[in-house]
């Protein structure tokens, strides 16, 4: 966790985005927000809420129809790919769309090769990234020989190796069993702790948001519905319900029982309950 007064690394001002014909959907309808360097933010919302469009605008793939997105002080959609990749990393939901080389090692090296880094630097950084994601032993395998979970890690490693300041991860836990989902979230948390990387995670698993994210931004119909720490946001059950979002079970229980301080995890809920029952 970092202090509240940290420098904003992402600034979104008056962001509007309309898809070109034939779709012509107004995906974002006036979004204003700032993300501080080193924050771990969850981006939450139903399909169609605009969360993916917002993420794509944050990473520069979509150019705003109106408004401005700046990351690390630069208009991100106007940067060339090589500059952009060093500022914002984007890990897509489906790892199969992000694997281009014949071996795990080459895959991770790919980005650095595109940036024309010297060979010894590439070797060092690729090894570091692979070891961090526990893929070093599999470095000679073809990416498609890996399990789904390992391919997801590989996709993350391939972006991590570029050392972006902001890392956007799109639904990192879909299709994973709960234990693997937590491993990925632990990884992102460690990254944030050790390297100060700002993390924006698009997710719909509220229990993970409660456990790992210090801030959640909820989008609804192209606008920000609510933005704040989970401890405050999860209290607003009715507001969240308009966007079909349901706080984790212990939060809902706490609201029904009037438990304070408001718990986000099982341990906190236990403590709050026991505190109401002195022996």
């Amino acid at each position: 966790m970092r202090s509240a007064a940290s420098v904003p690394i992402v600034r979104v001002e008056g962001l509007e985005f309309v898809y070109p014909p034939p779709r012509e959907i107004r995906a974002l309808n006036g979004v204003n927000l700032q993300i501080g360097a080193g924050e771990v933010v969850a981006l939450v919302g139903q399909n169609g809420s605009g969360k993916t469009s917002l993420a794509r605008c944050l990473s520069g793939y979509l150019r705003p129809t109106r408004g401005r997105v700046s990351v690390a002080g630069q208009d991100i959609s106007r940067l060339p790919p090589s500059r952009r990749a060093r500022v914002v990393g984007y890990v897509f939901q489906n790892p199969d769309h992000q694997l281009f080389r014949e071996s795990v090692w080459d895959e991770v090296a790919f980005g650095l090769q595109n940036l024309r880094r010297p060979w010894d630097q590439i070797e060092r950084e690729v090894e570091a990234a692979l070891r961090r994601l526990e893929l070093w032993d599999k470095r000679d395998l073809h990416p498609f020989q890996l399990s789904k979970g390992d391919r997801q890690r590989l996709a993350i490693a391939a972006i991590l190796v570029l050392s972006p300041q902001v890392l956007i991860v799109d639904e990192p836990t879909t299709g994973q069993d709960p234990r693997k989902a937590r491993e990925i979230m632990d990884l992102l948390a460690a990254l944030n702790r050790d390297q100060g990387t700002t993390i924006v995670a698009i997710t719909h698993v509220m229990e993970l948001v409660a456990e790992y994210c210090e801030r959640m931004i909820v989008l609804h119909q192209g606008q920000v519905l609510v933005d704040g720490p989970p401890r405050a946001v999860f209290r607003q059950v009715d507001l969240l319900a308009t966007s079909a979002i349901s706080p984790p079970p212990v939060c809902r229980l706490a609201l029904r029982l009037g438990l304070e301080p408001f718990p986000l995890t099982v341990a906190e809920a236990r403590d709050a309950l026991l505190a109401r029952m002195p022996r």
């Binding site: 489906n94 769309h97 595109n114 570029l162």
Partner: peptide, 18 residues
């Protein structure tokens, strides 16, 4: 549609040819 995502993913790796 998948091709569009793949192209974006390539851009994410600083690939120049897109």
């Amino acid at each position: 549609e998948e091709l569009v995502i793949i192209r974006n993913a390539l851009t994410a790796r600083a690939y120049h040819a897109i």
